[in-house]
Structures are given as C-alpha cells and as structure tokens.
Computed example of a mutant assay.
Amino acid sequence: MKKLDSLQNQFGDQIEIITISSENQKRLEKFIESYKTSLRIASDTAHTKNFIYKIIPHTILIDKNGIVRAITSPENIDRKVIENLLADKDIALEVKDDFYINPELKVETIKTIANADYRIELKSYDQEKRGGSRPLKDTEGNINGIEMWNSPIPRLYQTLFNVPSPKRMIFKDSLTEDDFPYEKAHQYNFTIQVSDKYQENWRALGVEFLNEHFDVNAKMGLDSLMCYVLKNTNNLLKPSEAESTEFMFMGPVLQSKKIKMSRLADYLENFTSIPVVDQTNLLGEYDIALEWQAEDPKTIHVELKKYGLELIRSEEKLPVEIMEIYKKK
C-alpha cells in the first residue's frame, strides 16, 4: 500500500490507482481509518468475473484507452513502468497466472508406506495445490491423521509437533532458515492416516518417518526466550455454554467457541515477533470473538480488553517449548 501511495503521489492526476477488496464495507472503513491511505478503495466482487486469480495481491495495468497492458505481481510495478504506460510504450512484464499448469512439472512420489495400520506418503511439489493442511478423520469424526500441501521441511515438522508458530523454531548445526527456501524444489506434500491402533500416536509416527527420510531432523525441547504474556486482568470471561468447540480465523478476524486460553495464545502468536505464553490461570473453555486491524496493532489490545485480557511483554526470559532442527548424525 505504501508503494502504491507513493506512485499515486508521484504521478498525480496522470494515473488513478484503485485498490479492490472483497471485504465488506464495515471492515474496509476500519482499515481506512487505521491506515490513513489516500487511495481509492472499492468493496467489490464483480471484478473476479473478468479478472480471475487465486492469490493476492494481484495487479492489473490499464491504459487510457481501456486496454489491459499487464496482469502481474505488484512488485513488478515501478516508476519506469508507469512512465512507459503514459508514453504508450511497450510494457513487458511477467504475467501472473494463478491457474497456469506447467506440463513438464510432474508430481513425484518420493516414498510410501501402506499397511493395515497406517498409510504415509511423501510427494514432491504439486503446482495444482496451494500451501496448507487439513486434518483427516475416521468414520466417527475422530482425527486420525493429516494432509499437508507444498510445505518446506520445517513446516512439515512444525505441523506434526503442533508447534504454534515459527517463532519457536531453533536451527542447530550451522543451519539457518535460508537453508529451507520457499521454492518448489524445497516443498513437499505429506499425508499420514492411521487405524485405531495408532490413534494417539500418529504425530510421532509422522515425525519418525520424516526423520528417517531427510538429512535434517527435528525434536522438541525447552529454551528460555523473551515472550509476550497473556494475562487475565478483570475476570470478565464466563465459561462457554456451547456444545462443541469452534475455531475459525481469517487474519485479524477470529470467531471461536469453547476454546482454552492456550489456544487463544497460539492464535495471537501468529501476529507477534516472539512466542506468546498463557498466564491467565483460566482453566475453563470460553467463547472469544476478535476483530482488529493488522495495520494497527493497538487495536488487538482494545479487543482483548473486552474480555478482561491483556497482552504484555515479559520482563525476563521465560521457559517455552521449542522445536530444534538439526543435521542428522
């Protein structure tokens, strides 16, 4: 947004930058209030009929005659590109096509184990899938495994160990985050699903499989780190009366029912630079709904205050569970 603001200011009324979002008007008004942008912001879904995409941000460049000159990623737009657009010169930018399938890029099965008790499968990058994961369930609705898509090695381990965020990853043996770039050659698809026999141990079974296959391994440990602490200040929370647990979030919007405070701390850790530790001493399950502005971190404190909660930085290092990634010996 800052880059777009800058370009609009540089070229004035020679161009008009319109930012488009499918968010509702109320959400966008809050964004405008916190971000203070001078750009036009449109709440619109009709544009997706003409401009199809899966991943944002997505940039469309249109000249004064209404001709689409580029559909690309916003990092490709700079002052020179705008000058060429205004001068009606050729514009050669990489096309952002979220639906392009490279026929030469095949999904390869790297290793599979299948028997009466479990099925484990490791595959290479799949261009038809986005990164992410989903739990797998048996016929009675019990979680008995997981499927992960296009994830680098640390992310595979993080998910299996159920580590809240990358802030708890510690790289050993001269390894760094740069050794695991978010590139196709370093992304994997992983599936594990087990029978009742391994119902309680499928995560450990998955870790064992990865440890055997990769040259780097991972394990859980303890370390002392600076943290944010979630505290209960006013005892406003009442135990949930919901029949079942619900947990859904899209960025700064959280809708949840019957969750433990530790799960709220895990959610908050997605938006902090250091781990979040639950020190509320609230042992029940609660209904929590948050709607704050990622552009204005202060708003999350306002939302938490409604529940008598406070997020503060610890004055000293605290012991937290971490995940160590190291070279296989």
Rank of each mutant, 00 (worst) to 15 (best):
S38F: 06
F31D: 04
K327W: 04
K167I: 14
R119F: 12
A204N: 15
L205T: 13
L236T: 10
D13C: 05
K89R: 11
I146N: 03
I170R: 14
N50A: 09
L290I: 03
N76T: 10
N65H: 15
K106Y: 09
K172Y: 06
L283M: 13
V216T: 14
D179E: 14
L282I: 04
E121D: 00
K172H: 11
I55V: 13
A70M: 07
G145P: 00
V216R: 02
N84F: 09
M248Y: 12
N84D: 15
L105Q: 12
I60C: 12
P319V: 11
K123W: 01
L222T: 11
F31K: 03
Y307D: 04
E183D: 14
S43L: 05
E269N: 06
I67S: 12
Y53V: 05
N65F: 13
S38C: 09
I312V: 15
P181I: 13
D287T: 04
R203V: 06
V277L: 06
M169G: 09
N232D: 13
S21M: 03
F161K: 05
E23M: 05
H301C: 07
E291T: 02
V277F: 01
S6R: 06
I113H: 04
P74F: 13
F190L: 02
L230C: 02
F99T: 00
V95T: 10
I18F: 03
T59G: 14
D117N: 13
D90W: 00
N270S: 04
R168S: 03
I32S: 09
I274Q: 09
L254R: 05
L282C: 07
F190H: 00
T45Q: 13
L93V: 06
N235C: 03
L283W: 04
A204C: 05
I56T: 11
D266M: 02
L122C: 00
Y326I: 07
Y286L: 08
V207I: 15
P319Q: 10
E140Y: 13
M261P: 06
S38E: 14
V216W: 02
K129C: 09
L86N: 08
E303M: 09
L282P: 01
K123R: 12
K257A: 10
Y125C: 03
R119G: 04
H301A: 14
Q8V: 02
I101M: 03
L175V: 10
T48Y: 12
Y188Q: 10
S244C: 06
N150V: 00
E246T: 11
K329H: 11
D97K: 02
K257F: 03
L268K: 01
I18A: 02
Q8G: 08
N201G: 08
E295F: 10
L210I: 10
S256H: 00
T112F: 00
Y198D: 08
N24E: 11
S314M: 05
L254G: 07
R40A: 11
D223V: 00
L156H: 02
N102R: 01
